[in-house]
Amino acid sequence: MKRAEDDGPTVLVALSNPRTESALVTLAGALAEHAGGRVLATHVVTVPDQTALEKAAESRAALDAASDELLAAAATDAAAFDVPIETRTILSHRGIGEVFDAARAHDAAVVVMGYGGARFVGGRVEGWLDEIARDLPCDFLVLDGRRLELSNVLVPTAGGPSSDLSAEVAAALRDVLGVDVSLLHVVEPGDEAAGRRFLADWADGHGLADARLRVEAGDVGETIGRLGEGYDLVIVGATERGLLSRVVRGSLAVDAIETLDTPALLAERPSGRSPWDRLL
């Protein structure tokens, strides 16, 4: 992700829940510090379709009080990182659509958000959701979990653009927060030697030569679920397009993390995008 001329790339963090705010800002702050960028914390207040935005604005004082408290907490948490932070509140019928618009308007390099399901969705979602999900404005990171106490992370990979994004996030967490990184590659029985060669080359090519390499034979989902319990965070690259479409409908449908109790960070990179050059 290419650096801007003035204050570096923008990491947009979309907040909706005070219980997940600290974890999301921690991720955003680490990414922004690693890239010499800034954090833009947004609180999108989704207004029901039957309520006019002008009518909702009449209750703005109450909305602003709750939003100000959430964004003030974000600014406090972001102070732990060497990054500037800007905050804003948006009233909208469109929920996740406003996050996309904000990402485009501010030329965001990456969006960090929680697994909010329907909390991000306005009532008029079906007509345009699939269309916008096919045209992501930037990289997206979706956290399924409320708390982060990071000392080690696991990155499963079989290659691909979204796994590249997972590696870049892991490298930022290593460099900024000092976490230990492990890489996992799951193979068919008998393919362990080839798997080790692949994973060693992949680690070298993604700046993670110091990571612990784990090659396991077996089912991908079961292996990630079993090994992931020993880590503070599992970073999973989307293996197919449409992660955001599933997220906003409230159905992650990612077999590898279905039964995982450890917090999981799902990464999706738009097809055709160069490897995180906007941020690095």
Results as ranks from 00 to 15, higher is better:
Tyr231Asn: 02
Gly95Asn: 09
Leu53Trp: 04
Phe198Gly: 07
Ser251Met: 04
Arg146Lys: 14
Glu33Thr: 08
Glu149Gln: 13
Gly117Glu: 09
Val39His: 00
Ser151Ile: 04
Ala238Cys: 06
Arg146Ile: 06
Arg60Phe: 10
Val181Phe: 02
Gly230Tyr: 05
Leu91Thr: 11
Asp130His: 02
Glu5Pro: 01
Gly228Ser: 05
Val99Met: 11
Arg104Lys: 15
Gly205Val: 01
Asp180Ser: 14
Val13Asn: 09
Leu260Ile: 03
Ile224Leu: 00
Ser182Phe: 09
Leu15Trp: 04
Leu141Cys: 11
Gly95His: 07
Leu15Thr: 01
Cys138Leu: 03
Trp276Leu: 13
Glu21Ala: 15
Ser92Tyr: 06
Arg269Ser: 12
Gly123Met: 12
Glu268Val: 14
Arg278Gly: 12
Gly242Met: 00
Arg119Met: 14
Ala103Tyr: 08
Val121Glu: 15
Pro156Glu: 06
Gly145Leu: 12
Thr46Ala: 04
Trp202Asn: 10
Tyr115Thr: 13
Gly237Cys: 02
Asp6Arg: 10
Ser59Arg: 13
Ala172Pro: 08
Arg94Val: 06
Arg19Met: 09
Leu136Trp: 02
Gly122Thr: 11
Gly230Thr: 01
Ala74Trp: 10
Ala72Phe: 06
Leu143Arg: 10
Asp130Tyr: 10
Val247Gly: 01
Asp6Phe: 05
Gly145Glu: 06
Gly123Asn: 13
Leu24Ala: 09
Thr42Leu: 09
Glu54Trp: 04
Pro84Ala: 14
Leu136Gly: 07
Leu165Asp: 01
Ala4Ile: 01
Leu154Thr: 10
Ser92Ala: 13
Arg94Thr: 15
Lys55Val: 15
Arg88Pro: 08
Asp139Glu: 15
Ala14Tyr: 01
Ala118Glu: 15
Val25Ile: 11
Arg104Met: 12
Ser92Asp: 13
Leu63Arg: 07
Leu173Cys: 03
Ala203Pro: 10
Gly159Ile: 05
Arg94Ala: 14
Asp180Trp: 06
Ala209Val: 12
Ser163Pro: 05
Thr87Ser: 15
Tyr231Phe: 14
Ser245Met: 00
Trp276Lys: 09
Ala28Tyr: 00
Thr223Asp: 03
Leu177Ile: 08
Pro263Met: 05
Val169Ala: 10
Val234Gly: 01
Val236Ser: 04
Pro48Ser: 06
Ala118Ser: 15
Leu265Tyr: 07
Ala52Trp: 08
Arg273Tyr: 03
Leu233Phe: 01
Leu40Phe: 07
Gly36Phe: 00
Ala73Pro: 12
Gly195Val: 12
Glu168Phe: 14
Glu131Val: 15
Ala28Cys: 07
Glu168Met: 09
Pro48Phe: 07
Leu136Glu: 01
Leu243Met: 03
Thr262Val: 04
Ala253Phe: 06
Gly225Asp: 14
Leu165Ser: 12
Ile235Asp: 05
Gly95Ala: 04
Asp180Pro: 02
Ala78Trp: 02
Val11Asn: 00
Gly250Glu: 01
Asp180Met: 09
Tyr115Met: 12
Asp82Arg: 14
